[in-house]
Simulated scan of single mutants.
Amino acid sequence: MTTVEKHVGVEFACAGTRLAASHYCGTNGACVVMTGGLGVTKEPGTERFAEAFHAAGFSVLAFDHRGIGASAGLPRQVQTMRGQAADWEAAIEFAAALPEVDPARVAAWGFSTSAGHAVRLAARHPELAAVIAQSPNVHGPAATRNAARYQRVGAMLRMTGRGLLDAVGGLFGRPARLIALGGAPGEVAVLTTPDGALGDAALNPGGSHPEWLQAIAARSTFGVMAFRPGREAARITCPALFVVCDDDRSVLPGPGIRAAERAPYGELVRVPGGHYAPFLDQHDVAVRAEIEFLQRHLRTD
């Protein structure tokens, strides 16, 4: 069976904005809602995990945030924390209404910044049955301070200037000023950490997703810097699995570990490697742990 045959394209709305998703119809009545990290579209960000979950019997709804990928929304490539949170809520509501899905058995899965959104979503929506936070960015200020260690002063100043110009330009309806998602120290990019530079190899091996624009609006970085969903971990009432990479030099392992400890029903899986290890040499380990977690908490047969 090809990837195309495994899922169908669907659409749903969030405050009038059309969001695009891939629906994998499962057999066990449970559904996992997924999306990629900051600026990452659903195909490179979720496909390998979505296929594994689907093969285990779960339905999957993998969606693109507004402004990127196949979803509508203007201006393009602008990613705000408030907008992404609203998109998540709309996706959960849509997934719960799918004909094969038991609305009491819907889980959220996220990677990096989207994992932070999944944590916050679980804290604010007790109807969620489970949450998986993989390489979670749950403390934006800490991640920002750490990223600065691997960036050159001149590049940091250029990035800040571009962000400010982009924010002002946005007030006048001008197109976004883009910055790359990953790059080397000295380049203007969201991540110039040692493992952050592996993003393309991990998510886009061999250029398999040429349609993915690996850039976001410079103004989008300001919201990430202040993003602190880990503070809400203690309010999560559903089972929560945190998959933390011990050598993560992009979002750091410490905040994710502490969030897992604060969550009343938190579970922690630690794997060796950097930020993208679950997509690279630790992929099989991460998938097995996540499927086992979902089977324990979402299946009834």
Score class of each variant (00 low, 15 high):
2 T>Y: 14
6 K>P: 02
6 K>S: 13
9 G>R: 07
10 V>M: 10
10 V>G: 00
11 E>W: 08
15 A>L: 10
16 G>W: 00
16 G>F: 00
19 L>N: 09
24 Y>H: 12
26 G>A: 10
27 T>S: 12
31 C>M: 04
31 C>R: 03
33 V>D: 01
34 M>C: 12
35 T>E: 01
36 G>P: 14
39 G>R: 01
39 G>Y: 04
41 T>K: 03
41 T>P: 11
43 E>D: 10
45 G>R: 00
48 R>K: 08
52 A>V: 00
54 H>N: 00
54 H>S: 02
57 G>W: 03
60 V>C: 09
61 L>V: 15
61 L>E: 13
62 A>V: 00
62 A>W: 04
62 A>T: 12
64 D>I: 09
71 S>L: 08
74 L>N: 08
75 P>Y: 04
77 Q>T: 11
78 V>Q: 04
78 V>R: 10
81 M>N: 15
82 R>T: 02
83 G>P: 13
85 A>R: 15
86 A>V: 06
87 D>Q: 10
89 E>T: 08
90 A>G: 03
91 A>C: 03
94 F>N: 09
95 A>P: 14
105 R>C: 02
110 G>E: 09
111 F>K: 03
111 F>P: 10
114 S>V: 00
115 A>G: 10
117 H>C: 14
117 H>G: 09
117 H>W: 10
118 A>H: 05
120 R>Q: 12
120 R>V: 05
128 L>P: 13
129 A>L: 08
132 I>S: 11
133 A>C: 15
137 N>G: 06
140 G>F: 12
140 G>Y: 08
142 A>S: 11
143 A>Q: 06
143 A>V: 03
146 N>Q: 13
147 A>H: 08
153 V>Q: 07
160 T>W: 06
161 G>H: 02
164 L>C: 14
167 A>F: 07
168 V>G: 06
173 G>R: 13
179 I>A: 07
180 A>I: 07
182 G>Y: 05
182 G>A: 13
184 A>K: 15
185 P>L: 06
188 V>G: 10
188 V>N: 05
192 T>K: 06
192 T>H: 05
193 T>L: 14
193 T>Q: 05
194 P>N: 13
198 L>F: 02
207 G>N: 06
210 P>V: 11
211 E>R: 15
212 W>K: 02
215 A>D: 12
216 I>Q: 12
219 R>N: 09
219 R>K: 14
222 F>T: 05
223 G>K: 07
227 F>N: 02
227 F>S: 02
228 R>M: 11
232 E>S: 14
234 A>L: 02
235 R>S: 02
236 I>W: 05
242 F>N: 11
243 V>C: 15
247 D>L: 11
247 D>M: 05
252 L>P: 15
256 G>P: 12
259 A>E: 06
259 A>K: 06
260 A>P: 03
262 R>I: 08
266 G>L: 11
267 E>L: 03
273 G>F: 02
275 H>C: 09
278 P>T: 00
283 H>M: 04
284 D>W: 01
284 D>S: 03
286 A>W: 07
287 V>G: 10
288 R>I: 04
288 R>H: 08
292 E>N: 08
293 F>E: 12
295 Q>V: 01
296 R>K: 04
297 H>G: 01
299 R>M: 03
299 R>Y: 01
